[in-house]
């Protein structure tokens, strides 16, 4: 099987508009002759999208003029496919959480509260937390994507 030789470009977008830019760019590339094969919007890259293209992407090309597209990331080295691979299979957030970690809740009724991880349920991607500032420690079960790690492991 022959290898596919495409270049991967990182494009800067307005924060929060990554998906819209990707969809608009895909639609525009279909109508024009730009050789975009795929567009990747990893959740971990805020404000950037990765575009796989068989032709060189030039911001001056009117065919890729899309609202909220801010520019192309220039660099001496090209983005290799190996680097992109790790975005294709994102590892679950839960694998980076350890028992005893200090986390902050980012959504739900306890938003903004700090808590300590007491138990991890990997199969259901849930964690049991104990709020630090609560007078009485009450275990709270939340989904792993509702927390942000502040400190990997408490001393």
């Amino acid at each position: 099987m022959e290898d596919i030789e495409n270049s991967i470009y990182a494009l800067k977008t307005s924060a929060g508009q990554e998906r819209n830019v990707a969809r608009l760019l895909a639609r525009k590339s279909k109508d024009s002759g730009v050789g975009i094969c795929s567009i990747l919007v990893p959740e971990s890259l805020k404000g950037y999208i990765l575009v796989e293209s068989s032709t060189k992407i030039d911001m001056r090309n009117p065919d890729i003029k899309v609202p909220h597209l801010r520019g192309i990331v220039e660099g001496n080295k090209d983005i290799t496919f190996e680097e992109v691979k790790k975005f294709l299979n994102p590892e679950p957030i839960i694998s980076s959480i350890q028992k005893g970690s200090i986390v902050e809740l980012v959504s739900g009724p306890f938003k903004g509260e700090r808590a300590k991880v007491v138990r991890i349920d990997e199969s259901r991607e849930e964690v049991v937390l104990e709020l630090i500032e609560a007078a009485v420690p009450i275990p709270v079960t939340v989904k792993a994507d509702q927390i942000r790690i502040i400190q990997k492991e408490a001393d």
Binding site: I4, E18, A26, S38, V41
Partner: peptide, 13 residues
């Protein structure tokens, strides 16, 4: 995470 495939035959992804 979003992935838009426009040309599956030529895309390495």
């Amino acid at each position: 995470g979003l992935l838009v495939i426009t040309n599956p035959d030529e895309s390495a992804v």
